[in-house]
């Protein structure tokens, strides 16, 4: 499950994930967030993930809030 966290790490909202074998008991990933505020355009929040893999590339769409207002941003697994 991809989800966003807010106010339990310093900085704005960020995307992370949790895993489960039975959909009822979840283990949170406790490492670095998948996406967190780092650029001007997502300085305030980088959150609300939609993640998919296509042709060997992972696409992570999210809602970015920052210098350009609130819009839809993308991060990928390759440059």
């Amino acid at each position: 499950m991809f989800y966003f966290g807010y106010q339990w790490r310093p900085g704005g909202a960020f995307d992370t994930f949790a895993c489960s074998y039975d959909l009822k008991h979840w283990t949170k990933w406790d490492g670095e967030p998948l996406i967190k505020p780092s650029a001007d355009f997502d300085r305030t929040h980088a959150h609300k993930p939609w993640v998919l893999k296509h042709d060997g590339v992972v696409y992570h769409y999210y809602c970015a809030v920052g210098s350009k207002g609130r819009g839809i941003a993308l991060a990928t697994s390759v440059p």
């Binding site: 994930f17 490492g31 939609w50 839809i72 941003a73």
Partner: peptide, 27 residues
């Protein structure tokens, strides 16, 4: 994590116009 991580930010793909906010992408 290693499978799903996306370290390369590509910036806004849908930039808001003045007076609007965009949110909650589903692809």
């Amino acid at each position: 994590y290693e499978t799903v991580k996306t370290p390369y930010k590509r910036g806004m793909v849908l930039t808001p116009e003045k007076g609007e906010m965009l949110d909650n992408p589903s692809v």
